[in-house]
Design a protein around this nucleic acid. Structure first.
Lengths: 336, 336
DNA sequence: CTCTATTATGCTCATTACGAGAATAAGGAA
DNA sequence: TTCCTTATTCTCGTAATGAGCATAATAGAG
């Protein structure tokens, strides 16, 4: 591509697979921590759009992913285009304006062989507060709640404090408000704004410090969770939220499973993504009687108990139901 | 902005209001039909991002909308970034690559005063097949179905034909498949691909013809519905689909209504957007007992019958329910 | 003033979905 | 065999949904 442009469009891929009951994100070694010690910061596979070469945005993305990770993408979906100037990398691209177009891609665990310095990371390493499968993580919950209350209290005016309180309650399910798994981005953005994630600090200081360290007084207030390069953690949050929303009404989970699977495997993939546990019998009823899957008559014996029947996605459901998703419980939506 | 860039990012706004039971889109006079006679083709308000001036994408958008229509936007939401090279305007921007970032904005009918050559158009003038409030429009339905069958039959191989048939059935609710109001973009894209909308033809011929006329042999096959400049109709389709999806689980309808409204007004706005009619009593039960609205104790007498109570959006519902939408019926989602 | 057209609002009822869990089946391992 | 584990089938109470009947309250016609 030419370098005379004053505008660069970055293509970013959030590549998701589920292995061993955890959602994993494909990352590469991030740049920008050249002076830091410790493990390298993670980044998403990304690269600039070639305005002349890339016929479509998606093809450009696939090109970069192939080059950086060796993976040939299947299911790909555009997420969002980020372009706020105050949250863009300083220095690296010179004075040029950078837009980031985020994509979500889903791959099967079997296809997960990667090359180079690419590797799979537990998505919840970046968002520990999003995994509620063993109840709310108490340590995090306690620290998080306290830190958020500080932030609420530090509002300048009464009206600002009450609006902050409402945001906190809705985002984190406090004071009687139910938890909404879908609000992943909203939660991350709130933490960013409250200065509780590392990115809040180094976004503004990177130009000066040239590394990702923060002052000790800030360090001890940070919420657990790995930081990522640039705005990549924000893009991952967008992806996880979108994925959680989408499995409810489109059969995208099957992009993450082999052709044949047991209902428990299906359930566990859904649970891993949603970050909550599901009622086994009801889940079966949902997918089976909902026409989403069909039994193959074959049995799978590696269960540790009674063998399980193998199922596969029932393609015909696409014609029958407008919203064929696996559905999460507990939403209680009198408005659907 | 500087002109030496080889990449331009266009900001496009789909500004929606509902008046007189119809969803309306704010349009400006389109360019690109200089040699055509007849009414000017419509375009969305849009303009290029200024990489140096605009702090955020949304601010850039608000700037262009203000300038071109006089409207100060309230609710704004990003939709999608389009950037396929084979569907971008030829000529107008020279050799530069153009990306279009589409936005959805909602305004109240009272705020709908516009300036210059901006004006409100019935959204269903662009998508007559999307309005099912008086049953399926029979003329369109007949012509559409026949034309689509032709397209299916013209597939090269048997496998292509059956995959086309499935797409048609799912998109347009044929052969027992239920209609899914949400698939607005999918339907438009299918029609585009099948060569049944004007844009399919002039996208490729514009450079040659310099106008929007098509050959008579093509003309008579086209489906009713106004064309728009560039890929703007595609962006409007994205917006309508998104809006239809979103009213089901976020209280965005209220952005289109005055502060106080009757339940029938609320219902009619929802019906206008969804393109379907709703059961009145059940709709009332849904929003009232769902906690979405609260009565004001005041009455509205311009009903033509018994006066109706005035309601307003009940803000507290945001804390109580994860998905406070007005909900469309008939979806039957055993996967919730 | 009464009658009628029109819209608002309240209520019923059958059907279906949901949440929780009991009960039973079918493997492997001790 | 007995126990442990997972799979699978059912039941049951509660809540949401779809359809429609019945009643209330206004304006306007006569």
């Amino acid at each position: 591509m030419t370098l005379d442009s004053d505008l660069v469009v970055g293509l970013n891929a959030v590549i998701v697979a589920v292995t061993d009951n955890r959602p994993r994100i494909l990352t590469v070694r991030g740049s920008g921590d050249s002076t830091s010690i410790g493990p390298a910061i993670k980044a998403l596979p990304f690269g600039p759009l070639d305005p002349r070469g890339d016929k479509t945005l998606e093809l450009g993305l696939r090109h970069w992913v192939r080059q950086q990770t060796g993976i040939e993408l299947g299911y790909v979906e555009q997420l969002y285009t980020f372009g706020d100037r105050d949250r863009e990398p300083h220095g690296e691209w010179g004075a040029r304006r950078v837009l980031s177009i985020g994509y979500l891609a889903l791959v099967r665990e079997a296809d997960a062989r990667v090359t180079g310095d690419a590797g799979w990371e537990d998505a919840y390493a970046f968002f520990p507060w999003e995994d509620l499968r063993s109840g709310k993580p108490s340590l995090i919950d306690r620290k998080l709640t306290l830190a958020l209350q500080d932030w609420v209290a530090s509002g300048a005016e009464s009206s600002e404090r009450s609006s902050r309180q409402e945001r906190v309650d809705i985002c984190f399910g406090l004071h009687g408000t139910p938890w909404d798994g879908y609000r992943v981005l909203e939660r991350y953005e709130l933490l960013y704004e409250a200065g509780l994630v590392r990115e809040s600090w180094f976004d503004h200081d990177l130009a000066a410090h040239g590394n990702l360290d923060v002052a000790p007084s800030v360090e001890h207030r940070l919420i657990p969770g790995l930081a990522m390069s640039l705005d990549h953690r924000r893009i991952v949050a967008t992806a996880l939220g979108r994925l959680r929303g989408k499995i409810r009404f489109r059969p995208v989970v099957f992009e993450l499973l082999p052709d044949e699977f047991t209902l428990l495997q299906l359930q566990q993939v859904v649970e891993a993504l949603a970050g909550v546990e599901l009622h086994k019998q009801n889940f079966r009823r949902l997918v089976d009687r909902g026409g989403l899957v069909e039994g193959r008559g074959k049995l799978h014996f590696q269960t540790g108990g009674r063998p399980a029947e193998l199922f596969r996605f029932r393609h015909g459901v696409l014609r029958e139901r407008p919203t064929p998703g696996v559905g999460l419980p507990g939403l209680k939506r009198p408005g659907l």
